Computed example of a mutant assay.
Amino acid sequence: MKPQLELIMNNNQRVPFTEIYAKDVIDLGREAPILKNNDVEFAYTDGETEADANFQAFPFVLEFVLEVGSWVFLQTKLQEMYEVLYQRKAYYLHTNLMPGIFYKARVSDLQLTKWNGSIAQIKIEWSVIKGCGESFGTTLKPFTLESEKWQIGQGALAEDHQYIHTKNHIQIYNAGSFEINPRMHELKITIQTYSQGGFKLTNRTTGEMFKFNDNERLYDTDTVIIDGTKIYKNGIRSGRLTNLGLISLAPGINEIDIDNVSRVKTAWDFRFLYK
């Protein structure tokens, strides 16, 4: 299998980069995670005080052979690549080697490493700005290899985890390595419920609670959406009707309670994050 890289731009345009430019691929893939040590040293004390490390941006590399007929033609091809690679906004890198994970990145370097008159060897390096990979599919997409959005090793295929529920007490499984924090990551929770006066959504695993006001009656036709940090009722921004609490998802099983409702349907849509 020939390694292939596609770029997924902000307008969802997909650019089959290696298919267009690479005669042969020499190297393609991400490098190891980079941890930043945040331990603190104080004067007149031994050692350091421990603090959580954080994951920094890490390199993603493509090295390939470009077949060109002359130095002039090489300059033309390089200009074409500059137009594609250097964008104001970051875009995603997706390979056929790890089809279930993609990486949000900015190009950081492009070098012509070899040139013999007709063949150029080029090395491109990106910086993966989030410090992690993201699942190519979201939790509301089918967890099958046939969907071409998941792969073995993502922790999502072995068990039959559900992300649409009609019960008050449920489990939401985060198969990734990182907490899903709605202040930073994609997380969309959709709630349709019948309630005489508001409701309370609690993640007992993290201790977080979202509350819709007690004096707000909700019907089966009403839809409440927590989309990142934005809260909507029937498409209208409605944060003032809530306690403005947000729900994050720890790695592994999250125990969720929905209280003060007689009927409820919830949908949880997010991507898993990987080291």
Rank of each mutant, 00 (worst) to 15 (best):
A120T: 05
I253C: 05
I191Y: 00
S118R: 09
Q154M: 15
P33F: 07
L110I: 14
E146W: 01
F210D: 01
A57E: 14
Q196G: 13
S127V: 00
E186H: 10
F73Q: 12
N243G: 10
D109E: 15
D52Q: 08
T95H: 03
N234Q: 05
G228T: 07
N254D: 11
R271V: 06
E186Y: 11
L66G: 06
F212L: 14
E208T: 08
Y232M: 04
D259N: 14
A105M: 08
E63G: 01
G131E: 03
Q151H: 12
D160S: 13
D269R: 06
K233C: 06
Y92K: 12
I225G: 02
T242I: 08
V107C: 14
H165I: 04
K114A: 14
G252F: 08
S248D: 13
A43Y: 07
Q121W: 04
G155K: 05
I231T: 11
G137Y: 03
I34D: 01
D24F: 05
Q87Y: 04
N174L: 01
I191H: 00
L218R: 02
A250H: 12
T144N: 07
K23R: 13
D259T: 14
M1C: 07
E208Y: 06
S108V: 13
M1Y: 09
Q151I: 04
G117N: 06
L85C: 11
W71F: 11
K275M: 10
V65R: 07
P251Y: 08
I247G: 01
F199K: 02
F42V: 03
L112Y: 07
V264S: 04
D52E: 14
I122G: 01
G47D: 09
S127Y: 02
T202R: 12
E50Q: 06
E125M: 10
V107K: 00
Y173S: 02
K104W: 00
R88Y: 12
G198M: 04
Q154T: 08
L157V: 11
F143N: 00
I152E: 15
E216C: 08
L62Q: 03
A43F: 07
H185V: 05
K77W: 10
K23V: 07
Y82H: 14
K233L: 15
N181R: 05
L78H: 03
N260W: 05
P3E: 09
Q171N: 11
W71R: 13
H94R: 13
G133I: 04
R14W: 04
S248H: 11
A267K: 12
G69S: 13
G47Y: 07
L187D: 02
L28D: 01
G100E: 03
V128R: 00
P251H: 09
K114N: 15
R183N: 11
E80R: 10
K114E: 15
A250P: 03
N254T: 10
R30I: 14
K149F: 13
K23M: 09
T229P: 02
P59I: 06
K233I: 12
H94N: 12
G117K: 00
V224K: 00
N213D: 11
A90N: 06
S238K: 06
E50T: 02
L5Y: 01
Q171G: 09
M9D: 05
L74I: 09
E67K: 10
P182H: 10
